[in-house]
Simulated assay, not measured.
Amino acid sequence: MSSPQTDSPVNPMPPVVVALFLAIVLLEALFSLGTRGLLGGPEGVGWRQGAIQDYGFNAEIFGWMLQNGVWPSEHLQRFVTFIFIHGSFTHALFAGIMLLALGKFVGEVFSQWATLLLFVTSAVGGALVFGLIAPERPWLIGAFPGVYGLIGGFTYLLWLRLGQMGANQARAFSLIGILMVLQLVFGLLFGSNSTWLADVAGFGFGFVLSFFLAPGGWAKIRAKIRHR
């Protein structure tokens, strides 16, 4: 029995989500201080742009690797490193807030390793789709493809719950629908590029992966296959 004095009224944030958030925040703090000349001197001003060039994902580089069948490690790492580089403080702030919100919900149901795998794999999948079909071929940076993967996990859990309640399971997709409408509105107002493709793909990967990564998910799938 746990004592009232030691119980917390708020469930703790999953450690893996905290670690991802800190990685984003600390790197952004480094870039922001460098841009303002408060760290690194004159070289600090170019830290962000240098990181984008060295660690951001770019569809043209990916196309070159596909065409030549060459997969150097310094370019393969871009599939993961782009997650932690953002274009501005605001970009990183919104990504971090959404990571904490969705990561807490998903991480309280999924295991730590499953939450991390869902986030990273969704981001990698989003970058892959972006690299294959993005027409404008801009740089892809930021945690949003991975965050959208967590939205996919959130949608899966809500989809399951609505099914257990006998409610309309299509309601589970309300959040992604609202976000896509907002992206469309912002795109019309301020202009947009094809990076939204990575976000949508990240959501799709996250939703599908949740069937396997959710507690007991793989066992249920094997049972259904054996039953057939």
Score class of each variant (00 low, 15 high):
F203R: 00
F62T: 11
A114H: 09
R228D: 01
F62G: 05
S88Y: 04
D54H: 12
I176S: 03
P15E: 10
L150S: 07
T195A: 00
D7E: 06
Q53L: 14
L128I: 07
F207Q: 01
T195Y: 01
I52Y: 02
L76K: 08
P135R: 09
G126Q: 02
P9V: 05
G152M: 07
V25D: 00
G41S: 05
L33D: 01
G50D: 14
L140A: 10
V185M: 04
G34T: 08
I133V: 15
A134R: 03
H91I: 08
N193W: 03
E108F: 07
G56R: 01
G216Q: 11
V18Y: 01
F119L: 12
N68Q: 15
G146V: 13
G204N: 06
S174V: 15
F144P: 04
H91T: 05
A123P: 00
F211I: 08
G69T: 11
V80C: 04
P135F: 02
P145H: 05
F79K: 03
I133H: 03
S111M: 05
V129M: 01
G163D: 12
Q112I: 02
L175E: 00
L209R: 04
L100P: 05
L157R: 15
L22P: 02
G107M: 11
G50S: 15
I141F: 09
L132R: 05
M65N: 13
G126L: 00
L66I: 15
G187C: 03
E60Y: 08
L158P: 08
G87K: 03
V25W: 02
L140T: 13
A170Y: 15
I225F: 12
G177F: 04
T195I: 09
M165I: 14
A123R: 07
D199E: 13
G146C: 13
R78V: 09
G69F: 09
Q77C: 11
T35H: 07
A23H: 08
I221V: 15
V10A: 11
S88G: 07
A223Q: 14
G163S: 14
L20G: 03
R222N: 12
E28Q: 14
F82L: 03
N193S: 12
I97G: 11
F212L: 12
L182Y: 05
I178N: 01
G46R: 14
L182A: 10
L26E: 00
W64H: 15
I225G: 04
Y55G: 06
R78S: 04
A19N: 02
L22M: 12
H86T: 05
A123V: 02
L118M: 10
M98T: 13
G41N: 14
S194N: 09
V200T: 08
V10I: 15
V200E: 04
R222P: 00
P12H: 05
H227N: 12
I83P: 07
L150C: 12
F110N: 08
F203N: 02
F207M: 11
Q169L: 09
V10P: 01
Y156A: 13
L140G: 11
A29S: 13
L140S: 04
V10S: 08
S2I: 10
F21H: 07
S192E: 03
E43S: 14
V200W: 10
A134F: 02
P135E: 06
W47M: 14
F212R: 10
G146M: 08
L99V: 06
F190S: 06
A51D: 03
F57M: 15
L27N: 06
L22W: 08
